[in-house]
Design a protein around this nucleic acid. Structure first.
Lengths: 340, 340
DNA sequence: CCTGGAAACGTAACCGATAACGATTGCAGT
DNA sequence: ACTGCAATCGTTATCGGTTACGTTTCCAGG
């Protein structure tokens, strides 16, 4: 790093080129009304001084910035995967991306974080935003696309087919012979959490297995929230033979607790997650889970936001993406399974 | 999303509370010189209008913003892992994080990207920046910490012990009986690429194995750059029995090419990578690689940057972190190995 | 030579917030 | 009542860049 006392501003360029800042601005933005000779002078001054326009100053004055924003409450694997998809969709689109993350709420929820971040950014800095797993409805001047929206929201959003995914997951467990299947729910306000629970209930209902409320733990998608819940479930006199967790992060914590309490997986306990984050493939045993292509979620959200900003979106404003079951080593028939 | 016509600014709050913007600013920033009654009025107006200060306007005026920046040329797994560490280090530190990514150069290098991004941000928006795998030296008004710096740089930086890591990797292959070991190098300007090649050469030299220049391919750390190089190596009449790639991304491409050309791994070909990105654990077979804890790199870089900004850093400005070899299924003795 | 109009360029207001500074008020001490 | 000092609060310049508007320059046509 080379220390530099002061940054090069537009007025430095103007002085060097012997013109006004207005003219420099016109040259930088390729506006009409500058002679070829002046353009050349200004360009050369810019080159020499190494001038680069300030994102901040520009966005304060301008309405369009060609920058899209993304706000997320933390950076776990889920968000990282989403991000890859977003970047891919924005590749060579002319839109840059700003990700804003607040240090205060890392790993813990704090009501309304997304609204605070968004307001700070969308004042002028960004033309639109993607919000990952919002807390509530969002007021904004610029377009917002939610990934995994709140329940009942009619705003633009992208989400997985959580109902079908969860149903398939529980059907998988039922098919293996499990009858006492625990469930660890996600944050209730999110549509995804609700649908995954619906899928759990629907699959059980179809199979004629009654839902035991004692086997349902109320988490919030944060991995840490699952630890005490798993402990409670597994320390019951009649623990479930399988647990379906509404996210991989929580499912991995279930595996941890199971190991800690001496349950062998999948011998004593089958575990299924939801998301298919990279870590799920590399645990011992691998986690059976529902793949929801977070990459695809990010990709589609960015594609939609881009078009919403330019005003060319004419497809439905709510996208649902398919899921698929990924069977790995964490599921097997229960020991006590009555052979068919 | 709820559409809102205009954002709430400080003057709106001032008008509503019947004071000047200066007073509102003082209340917002908790400055001295406002009566309790006025504070209450302003607070209530802020609450009612849902005011949130504009990050842009604030940073334009202020020198300190309590926002740190991170610029990276793309978002592969490497960057995502680094990011997790950065977020952890910034947790509850009072510093927010802005990640800036330019869409134009996704996946492809473009000289000087980091300088352009940095200038745009550091004008006023950020108090300091982390640059991941920079291209060259960086001019900046504010502190900059490089993760995986350029060769010969004396600027603040965090990097893995690439020399030791690479040496260990190649020693592992030599220990298995390999003698013809190919190498796919990284982008030459980076210190890491250079050290990893040094490690490769050093290990061979120690074992008395001559370096065959024909077995060295010149990549640039981008996974795609490895594909043609691997093809050339493996289509030789006398292909190497093992390949050491300077990054996991490139190593995974080697696996792809090997499969495509009918090489079985590790039967016909052993492959070793460097980085230990999450994907490396979940391929078939798993990739043997050198773990450099990208999480730790990010964590340390953020910790250093934080202290540099506040001026309390008194440790060495160049941090080197240890590496460790992770042996998985992609390495085995060569078929033709002379048994010891 | 004069005029008209377009092209080229500068001036200044403005975006939202901050901070230096000045102005006003209240109150204690004389 | 008067002074002096704090506490409180408004005015205004400022950050860097953009743009509406006004002014100057230049050239073609009469």
């Amino acid at each position: 790093m080379i220390e530099v006392n002061a940054p090069v501003t537009m007025s430095d360029v103007a002085r060097a080129a012997g013109v006004s800042t207005a003219t420099v601005s016109r040259v930088v933005n390729g506006h009409y009304g500058v002679s070829a000779r002046t353009v050349a002078q200004v360009r050369s001054a810019i080159e020499q001084l190494g001038y680069e326009s300030s994102l901040v100053a520009t966005s304060l004055r301008r309405s369009r910035t060609n920058v899209l924003g993304l706000v997320a409450h933390s950076f776990q694997s889920y968000t990282a995967e989403v991000l890859k998809g977003v970047m891919k969709a924005l590749s060579r689109s002319g839109f840059d991306l700003i990700i804003y993350a607040n240090s205060d709420l890392y790993g813990s929820y704090s009501e309304g974080w997304e609204q605070r971040h968004l307001t700070r950014l969308s004042g002028t800095l960004t033309d639109g935003c993607i919000v990952v797993t919002p807390w509530g409805d969002i007021r904004s001047r610029t377009p917002v696309v939610a990934i995994d929206p709140v329940r009942g929201s009619t705003a633009p959003s992208v989400m997985a087919d959580n109902l079908a995914g969860a149903t398939t997951a529980v059907e998988h467990l039922l098919g293996l012979g499990h009858r006492r299947i625990g469930f660890i729910a996600g944050r209730d306000s999110l549509a995804s959490a609700w649908s995954r629970e619906e899928g759990y209930r629907a699959a059980l209902a179809t199979a004629g297995v009654p839902v035991d409320p004692a086997l349902i733990g109320r988490g919030d998608f944060n991995p840490e929230s699952a630890t005490p819940l798993a402990r409670v479930l597994l320390q019951r006199p009649d623990p479930p033979s399988a647990i379906f967790a509404a996210s991989d992060g929580m499912a991995l914590k279930v595996l941890e607790v199971a190991r800690e309490l001496g349950f062998s997986v999948p011998g004593d306990l089958s575990v299924v997650g939801f998301d298919n984050i990279p870590e799920s493939a590399s645990t011992q045993p691998g986690l059976t889970t529902v793949d929801q292509s977070m990459y695809q979620l990010g990709y589609e959200a960015a594609r939609m936001l881009k078009s919403l900003v330019t005003g060319e979106w004419d497809e439905p404003r709510q996208i649902v993406l398919p899921t698929s079951l990924v069977v790995r080593g964490s599921t097997a028939p229960p020991k006590s399974a009555a052979r068919p």
